Amino acid sequence: MAVHGDIRAGVVDVHAHWLPRELLALPPGNPLGGMNDRGGALFLGDIPLSFPTAAMTDIDTIVADTHKSGLGVRVVSAPPFAFPVHAPSEADDYVAAYNQQLADAVSHTDGTLVGLGLVRLDDVAAARRELTRLAGAEGVAGIAVPPVACGRSYDRGVPREVLGVAAELGLSVLVHPMQLPRPEWDHHYLVNLIGNPVETTTAVASVLLGGVLEDLPDLRICFVHGGGCAPSLIGRWGHGWRSRDDVHRGSTRPPAESFRLLYFDTITHDPQVLRLLRAHASLDRILCGSDYPFDMAQPDPVGFLLDNGMDAAALEANGRRFLGMREA
């Protein structure tokens, strides 16, 4: 399964965010106080997010920015604050409402926008119901999920089973961190600057060392922010896999081999880090990302890649492959 119909030609940005105004309150149990508009600016509780509300909520604004950025297609998903993880059993209505509005919104953009929906990670039956609906929705390619849910990542339990359902239905999976708080990260924006890469790294390790891709060879899964710290740790993981029974018990392939089967976006903010990612990842699985409209976004996602030796046609082909589509 892939996106129904066709999409515009050009580079595909797989990492951008959209949330309709009607759902700014966020799912039940969310501790952040909901999102709200104040004079045209968007806030998370009382924290200013430093961009206009329309940049997150208005489809026409997002389409205009997509064209202005030189992109062919932008793949939009909910901001991580909207993941249904705090009271998932009470979030079915929110998840269904988001997914329906997402499908309605992207289907009217003439192939400029593609959607990634929401899903619960605590209940396989509930996840299967929503994933089955998403598989038939126009303009929707898959789901966006957090790296960690219910104290687990993707090597075990319900999160791993959800990946299995996604692979079965041919849905793409984008793994996006949530800025999980820790006391030592309560200043300098460390919850984002350190926390986000660490969350993503945890999920990458769980997938590699848990043998997920050995069980699910058709799974298309992408890790944002260049895979977090994973490219710099793949050698360490390989040493552990060769040296310790408890590390290689869950997988039959060395981590570096499975690493080349994962997709990664290019939001590294550093040409040297991008070069390291390209050294370890498969070149046909590196995807353009922007993180629009957040303040940590790559402001010129296409220019950054072209200036650092990447090819627009290859990036377009990679994006289409991640979405489950044939090359243009």
Rank of each mutant, 00 (worst) to 15 (best):
Tyr263Leu: 10
Phe264Lys: 08
Asp265Gly: 06
Thr266Ala: 14
Ile267Cys: 12
Ile267Asp: 03
Ile267Arg: 07
Ile267Gln: 05
Thr268Lys: 06
Thr268Asp: 04
Thr268Gly: 04
Thr268Arg: 05
His269Asp: 05
His269Leu: 11
Asp270Gln: 06
Asp270Ile: 05
Pro271Ser: 11
Gln272Asn: 13
Gln272Ser: 15
Gln272Glu: 15
Val273Asp: 09
Val273Phe: 12
Leu274Pro: 01
Leu274Ala: 05
Leu274Asp: 02
Leu274His: 04
Arg275Ser: 14
Arg275Glu: 14
Leu276Val: 07
Leu276Pro: 00
Leu276Phe: 01
Leu277Ile: 09
Leu277Arg: 08
Arg278Gln: 13
Arg278Ser: 14
Arg278Leu: 15
Arg278Asp: 10
Arg278Thr: 12
Ala279Ile: 09
Ala279Arg: 15
His280Ala: 02
His280Thr: 00
His280Trp: 12
His280Arg: 01
Ala281Gly: 08
Ser282Leu: 06
Ser282Pro: 03
Leu283Glu: 06
Leu283Cys: 00
Asp284Pro: 03
Asp284Leu: 09
Arg285Lys: 14
Arg285Trp: 10
Ile286Lys: 10
Ile286Tyr: 11
Ile286Ser: 11
Ile286Asp: 11
Ile286Thr: 14
Leu287Gln: 05
Cys288Ala: 13
Cys288Gly: 08
Gly289Tyr: 05
Gly289Phe: 06
Gly289Ser: 04
Gly289Gln: 05
Ser290Phe: 08
Ser290Gln: 09
Asp291Gln: 04
Asp291Ile: 01
Tyr292Ser: 10
Tyr292Leu: 09
Tyr292Ile: 01
Tyr292Ala: 08
Tyr292Glu: 02
Pro293Gly: 02
Pro293Cys: 02
Phe294Ala: 01
Phe294Asp: 00
Asp295Trp: 13
Asp295Ser: 14
Asp295Ile: 12
Met296Cys: 09
Met296Phe: 14
Met296Pro: 00
Gln298Phe: 01
Gln298Trp: 02
Pro299Asn: 14
Pro299Phe: 14
Pro299Thr: 13
Pro299Lys: 15
Asp300Ile: 07
Asp300His: 15
Asp300Met: 13
Asp300Leu: 14
Pro301Met: 12
Pro301Glu: 12
Pro301Leu: 11
Val302Ser: 00
Gly303Trp: 07
Gly303His: 10
Phe304Leu: 10
Phe304Pro: 03
Phe304Thr: 04
Phe304Glu: 06
Phe304His: 07
Phe304Trp: 11
Leu305Met: 04
Leu305Phe: 05
Leu305Thr: 01
Leu306Thr: 15
Asp307Arg: 13
Asp307Asn: 15
Asp307Gln: 14
Asp307Gly: 10
Asp307Val: 07
Asn308Phe: 09
Asn308Pro: 05
Gly309Thr: 00
Met310Gln: 15
Met310Asn: 03
Asp311Val: 13
Ala312Phe: 01
Ala312Ser: 08
Ala312Pro: 00
Ala312Val: 00
Ala312Trp: 01
Ala314Met: 09
Ala314Ile: 04
Leu315Val: 04
Leu315Asp: 02
Leu315Arg: 02
Glu316Thr: 04
Ala317Ile: 01
Ala317Ser: 09
Asn318Val: 08
